[in-house]
Computed example of a mutant assay.
Amino acid sequence: MAVWDDLTGQAEAIAIFRAAAEEPRESVATASTAASTETPPPTASHGSMTHSWLITGPPGSGRSNLAFAFATALISPGTPEGDEATRRQVEARSHPDLGVLTTEGVIIKIGTAREIVKRSHYSPSVGRYRVIVVEDADRMTEVTSNVLLKELEEPPERTVWILCAPSEADLLPTIRSRVRTVRLRVPSVDDVADLLVRRDGVDPQVAERAARQSQSHIGMAHRLATSAEARTRREETLATALGIRSVSTAVNAAARMISLAGDDAKAITELKDAEERAGVLRSLGLEDGQAIPMRLRSQLKDMEDDQKRRAKRSLNDGIDRILVDLTTLYRDIIMVQLGRTASVINREILGELESAAASSTPEATLATMDAIALARQRIESNVAPALALEAMLVSAIRR
């Protein structure tokens, strides 16, 4: 099975990366002449490889999946289609020729960036290249971005950088000028549903519903398709919004949605935190429940601080998912108001959508959608999520 087989909806981008991976290493142009923001046609082969890449695309389009598939193809010693052993190591992020710069907090730390830059100068140990993948490159501050600048412009001959971000505008112009950009599109609902059936063994009807409700967000579609709890939380979010009739119910709805986001975040991070703590204790020669010697407490403190940052980001992501789900709800309501029921996303609650549409006007529904967008901006600007949600949900009051 080729490394590209688990990707979906990005045939043009896959063709570009496949051609680059198949190019003999000896013919690769130097990074200083190859860096460009222009993407050549998918049929290009000669000269298609460069040492610095940027993959952009909307959330859920599969940026990271494509980046690691490309990394596997570059690292695999035998074939650019990716051999099984290399695939398993890349999936586990344990391959000696793979470096990953990412964060589970709000920003990528400068110290982490400096460490990965140092590792980028090591020669490949078993593969054709050493590959550095920067997930969520938009989370780099200006200072952190400057650490990478020279490396992206003049990396070692056998090192390849692959950055991922929602758009080029999320990065500094100096970064954009040093990479070759490949833009992804939103995959279709059918493409995502087919992937869930083929890769995860999901029932076709469940897969179609998850792909449609997630608006083709691959990660969220997988979660909805495989977690009954995630589906239940989403259904409760929509029902809560549809039940708003007064300011008091709007305030209560905001509190309930914060609670739902917290439950979702806890479900994602709780198991990971426990496994991480157990691993650290094992590495220190301790058992769970054993007293921690004073000299070792600083190491556990660093881990706990990272877990708190991860929990905060996970909660913010959960709140943002709720706001995205609410956007689909009010988008459906206005579609019903305009007589476009065939394009409704949440078809399972069409009766409730029709009732909500009858109790309001398209203008009022648009105002609510604007309020949702404003709430997302306010939360990004560190306004308390509860206050932002309350203000937004007051605009959703229907008689």
Rank of each mutant, 00 (worst) to 15 (best):
M1R: 09
G9I: 11
G9W: 07
I14C: 02
R18D: 02
A20K: 02
A21S: 07
E23L: 08
P24V: 04
E26Q: 12
V28F: 05
A35G: 12
T37G: 14
E38L: 12
P42Y: 00
S45L: 13
M49T: 12
H51Y: 03
W53T: 03
W53L: 01
T56P: 15
G57P: 13
G57K: 09
P59E: 11
P59V: 10
S61E: 06
R63F: 06
N65G: 14
N65H: 15
A69L: 10
T72L: 05
A73S: 08
L74I: 05
T79D: 13
E84N: 07
T86Q: 04
R87H: 08
V90M: 02
V90F: 03
E91M: 14
V106F: 12
I107C: 04
K109G: 09
K109M: 10
G111P: 13
A113F: 08
R119S: 11
H121N: 12
Y122H: 15
S123V: 15
V126W: 13
G127V: 11
D136R: 11
T141N: 02
V147T: 13
L148Y: 03
K150A: 01
P155H: 00
L163N: 00
P166E: 01
P166S: 00
L171S: 01
T174K: 00
I175S: 00
S177F: 01
S177Y: 03
T181C: 07
L184R: 07
L184S: 05
L184E: 06
V186E: 04
P187Q: 07
V189C: 07
D190W: 06
D191E: 15
V192I: 15
D194E: 09
R198D: 01
D200F: 10
D200R: 11
A207Y: 05
A207C: 05
R209L: 13
R212V: 02
S214R: 03
Q215W: 02
H217Y: 10
I218E: 11
L224H: 10
T226L: 14
E229S: 14
E229C: 10
E229Y: 11
A230Y: 13
A230G: 12
R231F: 08
T232P: 14
R233M: 10
E235G: 11
E236R: 15
A241N: 05
I244L: 06
S246D: 08
A250N: 05
V251M: 08
A253V: 10
I258E: 08
A261P: 15
A267Q: 05
I268H: 09
I268K: 09
K272T: 15
D273K: 11
E276T: 15
R282V: 14
L284D: 03
L286C: 06
M294A: 06
S298K: 06
K301L: 07
E304W: 04
D306S: 14
K312E: 13
R313T: 04
D320G: 10
L323M: 10
V324D: 08
T327V: 09
T327C: 06
T328K: 09
L329N: 02
D332H: 03
D332C: 04
I334L: 03
I334R: 00
V336D: 01
R340A: 03
T341W: 06
R347I: 07
L350W: 00
E354G: 00
S360M: 05
T361S: 09
T361R: 01
T361E: 04
P362H: 02
E363C: 04
T368I: 11
A373C: 09
A373P: 15
A375R: 07
R376C: 04
R376T: 08
Q377G: 09
A388W: 08
E390G: 06
L393C: 09
S395N: 10
R398E: 06
